[in-house]
Design a binder for these strands. Structure first.
Lengths: 202, 202
DNA sequence: GTACCAAAACGAACTAGTTCGTTTGGTATA
DNA sequence: TATACCAAACGAACTAGTTCGTTTTGGTAC
């Protein structure tokens, strides 16, 4: 029984729209400023909600952050699963596209990485599941011969992730360059990502 | 004229040891907590200095952060230059070693990336120089045939950086796993980094 | 249609604690 | 005397989280 369903016959009532707005506003705020830099008042204002409501739905700032992180991971996992059937290079390409279209997801992961377990309380089970599924995917590709079986699948997974996100973390690209590289640059980078992964698995 | 030099003949006096201690304490604090999460009082206490001194040497929290970032980039560039003569895979291996021995450097870069230009004011010229030198190194390796010349050297530089730092950013490795992976894991990861770069340049 | 109810929401003020940055008074040293 | 320093305190702004009286809304009974 799905708890999201409304009881018998009734129209599926729009579930807690205020909570939803708060979560959405928090998403933008936390992705932009992290936990320490985010402002509760700003989140409430953006959500067109009162602080009283915010604290009615979430106990702490940190709890709200965790909720955002969890939501992001779930959506990210779903987006990733979309392309899990493809070859590894094309999977990497799709992941790169996603990271360009929705940089918030990787930013959120970076914030969580930096701000640490002591403050945040990340959904470890979720992360572990997500990771295990990715590794299983790599193993399957190795079994059917399309990926060099001598790689540690765990390592290969991490390497692909690093390659996909390299321009987000490389200092010159991330800090020095203008924001929003043009479409040609993005396409060229994508091609390099795909090519890099092709070489890895060859 | 180098402003760091002491004037004529005098013994190169230990330069402003208090300032040094503050900078060192700030280094640890900012690497751990970022700009927004760092605490000025904690920095002063760690440095065994007074806040009065801290603000005598640095105008803002942000200025101190910039000083730390600049120092880190300079030292990082020096460490990188150490191994610039090696082959690209061994260079990547050395960089990986460095990132394991001194994670603060990459953390600092990540903080700067996330907290953004609006707040921080990164030493752009330094970053640009550093980047340009790395790219020149890649071009040289391409010229002598040890690296596939069909790569955009700029891209290859970023890819290597992404590969080296992949376990710092991959969510499962960074969030879920215990801190401080054992020596065997570290060695195995290093080998994978080297192998990955070998495949790229082949 | 009207009276009524309970939950959800508003909004504005308020508490209590924190934090940056400044100032003050005093000590050691050269 | 001048410089570097410290310990302590202070002010002002900010921030997380709370409280409370009022209003809105959706539903039900009469």
């Amino acid at each position: 029984m799905n708890t999201l369903d409304s009881p018998s016959g009734l129209p599926p009532k729009e579930l807690e729209p205020t909570r939803q707005r708060i979560l959405e506003a928090a998403r933008a705020e936390f992705a932009a400023h992290g936990l320490a830099g985010a402002r509760i008042d700003r989140i409430a204002r953006t959500a067109s909600a009162s602080k009283e409501r915010l604290y009615a739905y979430y106990r702490h700032k940190a709890e709200l952050f965790s909720a955002v992180l969890e939501l992001n991971l779930i959506e990210f996992a779903r987006a990733v699963a979309q392309d899990a059937g493809a070859s590894l290079p094309e999977f990497a390409g799709a992941l790169y596209d996603h990271s360009v279209a929705h940089p918030e997801y990787l930013r959120m992961i970076d914030w969580a990485n930096l701000e640490g377990r002591d403050v945040i309380n990340p959904p470890l089970a979720l992360i572990e599941d997500f990771h295990a599924e990715r590794v299983r995917g790599v193993i399957a590709l190795q079994a059917d011969g399309s990926v060099d079986a001598s790689w540690d699948p765990d390592h290969l997974n991490a390497l692909v992730f690093g390659i996909v996100s390299c321009w987000i973390h490389e200092p010159a690209a991330a800090l020095a360059a203008d924001r929003a590289p043009d479409a040609d640059t993005i396409a060229a980078r994508r091609a390099s990502v795909v090519r890099a992964v092709e070489r890895l698995i060859g």
